[in-house]
Design a protein around this nucleic acid. Structure first.
Ligand SMILES: [Mn+2]
Ligand SMILES: [Mn+2]
Length: 305
DNA sequence: GTATGCC
DNA sequence: GGCATACCTTGGTCT
DNA sequence: AGACCA
């Protein structure tokens, strides 16, 4: 095999071991390609990662071999990678990595972490989510048009209760519709509100949405997975690479783009995303501009039904 | 992925 | 250097 | 205990 590659990041010289190792065989994408992608996308991505505990989705032998989720920071990680310790619900605690700088993203890529997943809260308010997430999971054979329509319906519903919808094409099969909230409630409270909103949508559109966790009871409906809002749960952040044959990327969309027939959850990948980012930059850049309060959402919900 | 040991 | 082999890698929620 | 999810 080849010698380690070296990348200078944040004034630090990082080595990428086995740079020519192919992680995405169908597209011929290597570990060095992945590291360079994260180095380049870091300026846009870091604001969406800072302060948030990370679960690492790793594929040391490429995506055609089985990967695994790793939460605890291994002993061999360097000291300059930030950490935060959080209690496990069932007892004990877990020490997570926190991505504060580009070098950490590159280091994670070297560890064959293809996708970092992040909490919906961040330090120092780890117990209080600052995001409300509606994770839309379509059934196996759902036409893309149906998935787009579902996301549009959810986005419009959020607007009606005073939430600013931020849409993410996840790089897999669904969309996320996300709103910033003031971090003044705990996980159970936020999840309960998400569930309330999702249930109303499912009642209003019984052929389109379900909140049933069991696959068998979902039918052809889009599953609104509000469990993402629970304690120690994670979501894919903007610009993360997914473990798919093309190395697709999670990319923020303007809500209006859900009306375009060419738009798909897996539209963008490690190769074609740059053209878009050069044109539109970070569509989520202003997500913190006007976080909603849950009290306000509940008030509008009580009024508008 | 890392670490270690053997030729 | 090259190669083999051992070891490491989650947790919450619902039914 | 098993299904399901990121
Ligand atoms: Mn999803
Ligand atoms: Mn998964």
């Amino acid at each position: 095999m080849s010698d380690p590659a070296r990348l200078t990041v944040d004034g630090r010289e990082l080595r990428v071991a086995r740079p020519e190792k192919v992680l995405f065989p169908a597209a011929g994408i290597t570990k060095l390609d992945l590291a360079r992608y994260y180095l380049r996308v870091a300026p846009l991505m870091l604001p969406h990662l800072r302060g948030r505990p990370v679960s690492m989705e790793r594929y040391p032998d490429g995506i055609e071999q089985e990967g695994f989720v790793q939460k605890e920071v291994p002993a061999h990680f360097p000291g300059w990678i930030d950490r935060v310790t959080a209690p496990r619900k069932a007892g004990g605690e877990t020490t997570y990595a926190v991505v504060e700088r580009a070098a950490t993203l590159v280091y994670l890529a070297d560890q064959a972490c293809i996708t970092p997943h992040v909490w919906t809260s961040r330090t120092p308010r780890l117990a209080n989510p600052d995001r409300l997430i509606f994770d839309l999971d379509p059934p196996p054979a759902a036409p893309v048009a149906r998935v787009r329509a579902a996301a549009r319906t959810v986005a419009r519903a959020l607007v009606r209760v005073g939430l600013a919808p931020h849409v993410l094409a996840t790089g897999k099969r669904g969309f996320h519709v996300v709103a910033a909230i003031e971090p003044d409630s705990d996980f159970d409270t936020v999840r309960a509100l998400a569930h309330d909103l999702a249930e109303r949508l499912a009642r209003r559109h019984p052929d389109d949405f379900t909140v049933a966790q069991r696959r068998a009871s979902r039918g052809e409906r889009v599953y609104i997975d509000v469990a993402r809002n629970g304690y120690a749960q994670t979501a894919v952040p903007p610009y993360a690479v997914r473990a798919t044959p093309r190395a697709t990327v999670a990319v923020p969309l303007r809500p209006s783009e859900l009306g375009q027939r060419r738009m798909r959850p897996d539209r963008f990948d490690i190769g074609n995303v740059w053209r878009r980012l050069a044109r539109v930059g970070d569509v989520w850049a202003q997500i913190e501009a006007r976080p909603a309060t849950l009290d306000d959402v509940r008030r509008r919900l009580a009024r508008a039904g």
